[in-house]
Simulated assay, not measured.
Amino acid sequence: MAVEPIALVSTESPGSGMLRCTDAQSGCTILMGPPHANPRLWREYLDGALEVYRYYGAEEAVEYDAWLDGSCTSLFCVALNSEGRVVAGVRAEGPHRHVDQVHAVRSWSGRIGDAAFRRLVADQIPDGVVEAKTGWVARDAEHRHALADWVARAIVQSALLLGVRYSTGIAPSHVLDRYRTTGMTVVWWIPSSGYPNERYITHPVWWDMENYQALGTPEQVRLVESELAELRASGPVGWTGGERLAQA
Rank of each mutant, 00 (worst) to 15 (best):
residue 208 D to K: 02
residue 235 G to H: 03
residue 236 P to Y: 08
residue 227 E to D: 14
residue 219 E to G: 05
residue 240 T to N: 10
residue 207 W to E: 01
residue 238 G to D: 02
residue 225 E to N: 14
residue 208 D to G: 04
residue 226 S to T: 14
residue 236 P to D: 14
residue 242 G to L: 14
residue 222 R to L: 15
residue 212 Y to E: 03
residue 199 R to S: 10
residue 221 V to W: 02
residue 213 Q to F: 05
residue 239 W to C: 05
residue 233 A to Y: 09
residue 238 G to L: 02
residue 201 I to P: 06
residue 239 W to V: 12
residue 234 S to P: 13
residue 220 Q to L: 04
residue 226 S to I: 07
residue 213 Q to R: 15
residue 237 V to S: 09
residue 222 R to S: 15
residue 235 G to N: 03
residue 240 T to A: 11
residue 238 G to P: 02
residue 233 A to F: 10
residue 198 E to H: 07
residue 242 G to D: 13
residue 204 P to D: 02
residue 218 P to F: 13
residue 212 Y to V: 05
residue 222 R to V: 13
residue 220 Q to C: 09
residue 214 A to P: 00
residue 242 G to N: 12
residue 202 T to L: 01
residue 200 Y to S: 00
residue 201 I to F: 12
residue 212 Y to S: 03
residue 209 M to K: 03
residue 230 E to M: 12
residue 242 G to K: 11
residue 201 I to W: 13
residue 241 G to W: 03
residue 230 E to V: 13
residue 205 V to N: 00
residue 219 E to T: 06
residue 214 A to Y: 03
residue 218 P to K: 07
residue 236 P to G: 09
residue 225 E to M: 11
residue 228 L to M: 13
residue 227 E to T: 12
residue 236 P to Q: 08
residue 225 E to H: 14
residue 230 E to T: 14
residue 210 E to L: 14
residue 233 A to K: 02
residue 238 G to E: 02
residue 238 G to V: 02
residue 204 P to T: 01
residue 215 L to R: 11
residue 198 E to M: 07
residue 198 E to F: 07
residue 198 E to K: 07
residue 209 M to P: 07
residue 223 L to Q: 08
residue 230 E to N: 11
residue 210 E to G: 06
residue 211 N to Q: 06
residue 221 V to P: 00
residue 218 P to V: 08
residue 217 T to Y: 03
residue 201 I to R: 12
residue 220 Q to S: 14
residue 207 W to C: 01
residue 224 V to N: 10
residue 226 S to E: 09
residue 200 Y to R: 00
residue 229 A to W: 10
residue 213 Q to M: 11
residue 234 S to N: 10
residue 216 G to H: 04
residue 219 E to H: 04
residue 229 A to D: 15
residue 217 T to S: 10
residue 241 G to H: 03
residue 225 E to P: 06
residue 235 G to F: 04
residue 242 G to A: 14
residue 207 W to F: 10
residue 242 G to Q: 15
residue 211 N to F: 03
